[in-house]
């Protein structure tokens, strides 16, 4: 599978593990709130009809993130 370096680069169907967050302040907290910390496994489920945002499976919940926010989550492919 491809190695994407951030979450927004993940294609539907791909899975990756979070290696870190590069967002400041509030965005960082929000991402942590939904369970995105180092080691969290995330699957990209699909993009919305207009291509952005995309839906991700995070710790059993489906959560939509905009590309600009997802780009703050560094991941490595699995």
């Amino acid at each position: 599978m491809n190695t994407a370096n951030h979450l927004a680069g993940l294609l539907p169907g791909q899975t990756a593990a979070v290696t870190g967050l590069c967002a400041p302040g509030t965005i960082r907290r929000r991402l942590q709130d939904i369970g995105l910390i180092q080691g969290t496994v995330v699957e990209c489920l699909g993009k919305s009809p207009l291509g952005d945002p995309a839906a991700y499976l995070i710790r059993g919940a489906v959560i939509a993130l905009r590309d600009q926010d997802a780009a703050c989550v560094r991941v490595e492919g699995m």
């Binding site: 509030t26 965005i27 929000r30 839906a55 959560i63 600009q68």
Partner: peptide, 11 residues
Amino acid sequence: VPSSFTLELPP
């Protein structure tokens, strides 16, 4: 600028 946002898609 648009701020960050997360939206849960429930079952």
